[in-house]
């Protein structure tokens, strides 16, 4: 392989025909795609809550959704976006401690959110609301579960970033590894606001 570089000089650098960074554009397009996945799930939600004959929503069999707990959980997730932003600002300013603490806090807040969500599932299942019990249950678990899966993926990314920040991998000049997963995490947070509003509040 080393010999190859002797024979040729590699590809010519591509012309940059847009001011947008390719990785950033790619992430944005990916997020559009993700929004459409949620869109399809919201379509299911809309049909089952509104369109179908005898359409209804929670409370089902006297069981209501725990709006209070979910609101607190929403606050937890939203604050993780703030700590993430703080971590990103810190590394831009060369503040490694801020990065480490910020990432760790973000990760812990995200994990707490997921933990509370799983607990909510257990409580609801105990009260007889399951995906198998009714279509409303199916939609509730599918929508929040889809979001939960995104949180889990996001947490994996955050864990990697946190570990690497503790190994001192990022610099004020080179921190794409914090930025790109960060965009994803912010998306996951915003998506939750939409899910929370439609499923719990409306």
């Amino acid at each position: 392989m080393e010999a190859a570089s002797v024979h040729h000089h590699g590809p010519p650098a591509a012309n940059r025909s847009s001011r947008v960074h390719p990785a950033l554009l790619g992430m944005l397009l990916f997020i559009i795609s993700e929004v459409m996945v949620f869109g399809a799930f919201f379509t299911a939600y809309f049909f089952i809550r509104v369109v179908v004959e005898n359409a209804h929503w929670f409370p089902i069999d006297g069981v209501d959704l725990p709006v209070g707990v979910a609101s607190v959980n929403t606050a937890i997730l939203l604050s993780s976006s703030l700590t993430l932003h703080w971590a990103q600002t810190s590394i831009k300013n060369g503040n490694h401690t801020g990065l480490k603490v910020g990432m760790l806090l973000t990760f812990l807040l995200g994990a707490t959110f997921l933990f509370v969500q799983v607990n909510e599932y257990i409580v609801l299942t105990g009260e007889g609301i399951t995906p198998q019990s009714s279509a409303q249950g199916s939609v509730f678990f599918a929508l929040t579960g889809l979001h939960g899966a995104h949180v889990a993926v996001g947490l994996t990314l955050l864990a990697i970033v946190t570990l690497r920040s503790f190994r001192g991998h990022y610099t004020p000049e080179e921190h794409d590894g914090v930025e790109v997963p960060g965009i994803y995490w912010h998306f996951v947070d915003i998506m939750w606001v939409v899910v929370f509003t439609t499923v719990y509040i409306l």
Partner: peptide
């Protein structure tokens, strides 16, 4: 799940 189970409220 019951997305398409009309008896359980699916569509």
């Amino acid at each position: 799940f019951n997305f398409f189970n009309a008896a359980a409220g699916g569509d």
